[in-house]
């Protein structure tokens, strides 16, 4: 049976949702061991067991930046234990560890996969390209371990409920001059539901014109019990925090309803939201690419349409 390792970064005292998705997939490919990075707890390890982990390698790097100490330790473990496949999520710490580990092992890493196969021979992957209009199939050509970064929501997480995993505490490596320290952590406050889990999302883009106008998005969001999102243009301009970014380098969302106001529909935004069940777009440019995937497209000015919509909902 193939051996598959899954990287799991601790979020809110437990494994990230993304890593549970990966574990669900990994169960179909082989025997699952989880690399768990965080403080750790019996409850967290029990969750890993429920999603199919037989073994857990637990690292707690403390205030060291995760990448180098964990990647160096993993490289040694991988050379001895020779896993066939190591799955990571397309997420920040995951990318850092995968990149360093790949370089250390001299192994190729494939990014942005939406599916992974492991049958006879090297692993295979699928990737959305050109804004999700085409699917590229790729294959590794050399020997393993095969390192793959998988996009969020590529698989639906589901528990299997097997016995508690065997947990072994691993020592992060001493990395000398490659070390970096996390000296402060700042958490921004969030109102309303979490973007990744929300059933309804209202997102704004540069068409809002000014940071103050993002309030229209927030008002509408509140009325609909929705999470609020944004394009990278707004994040880069500092109007909203990165946590609100939807797209290739932000969150991947699959809500029931996604409302995009003043969003052009760039490829990198579409890959993060095109799987929403219903898409409503408001844009003054009739040729904006967002309309190509919208179930309802309003060619109009957000400054006119949004206030009227808000008023109508308030009066209901």
């Amino acid at each position: 049976m193939a051996s598959v390792w899954v990287f799991s970064r601790e979020v809110d005292n437990g494994p990230s949702t993304l890593s549970l998705e990966l574990m669900t997939k990994a169960r179909d490919l082989g025997e699952v061991a989880v690399i768990y990075v965080g403080v750790g707890s019996d409850a967290a390890f029990a969750t890993l067991g429920e999603y199919g982990a037989r073994k857990v390698f637990h690292f707690d790097p403390g205030d060291h930046l995760v990448a180098a100490p964990v990647a160096h330790a993993l490289a040694e473990m991988a050379q001895v234990q020779a896993p066939d496949l190591i799955l990571f999520g397309q997420a920040y710490d995951d990318r850092d560890v995968a990149g360093r580990l790949a370089a250390r092992l001299g192994a190729t890493v494939l990014s942005n996969a939406i599916d992974v196969g492991l049958e006879q021979g090297p692993a295979t992957t699928s990737h959305e390209i050109f804004g999700g209009t085409q699917i590229a199939g790729a294959a590794f050509t050399g020997p393993g371990p095969y390192l793959v970064l998988v996009r969020p929501k590529s698989f639906a997480a589901s528990p299997v409920g097997i016995a508690a995993p065997q947990v072994s505490k691993q020592k992060p490596a001493e990395v000398g001059r490659a070390d970096a320290r996390v000296i402060e952590t700042h958490i921004e406050e969030r109102e309303g539901p979490k973007l990744e889990d929300a059933a309804v999302i209202v997102s704004g883009g540069r068409g809002l014109g000014s940071p103050e106008n993002y309030q229209l998005i927030e008002k509408l969001g509140k009325l609909l019990g929705a999470a609020t999102g944004a394009t990278r243009a707004l994040v880069d301009a500092g109007w909203v925090p990165y946590a609100k970014q939807v797209g290739q380098t932000g969150k991947t969302v699959k809500p029931e309803v996604y409302i995009a106001a003043g969003v052009s529909g760039a490829m990198q935004h579409l890959v993060g939201m095109k799987d929403a069940k219903t898409i409503i777009a408001i844009n003054k440019d009739p040729d904006a690419p967002i309309f190509a995937i919208a179930d309802l497209g309003i060619v109009g000015d957000v400054h006119k349409v949004l206030p009227k919509l808000i008023e109508a909902l308030e009066n209901r």
Binding site: V11, I183, Y242
Partner: peptide
């Protein structure tokens, strides 16, 4: 980060 930012030094 997903929830804000960290100050990192090396």
């Amino acid at each position: 980060t997903n929830t804000g930012y960290e100050v990192v030094e090396a």
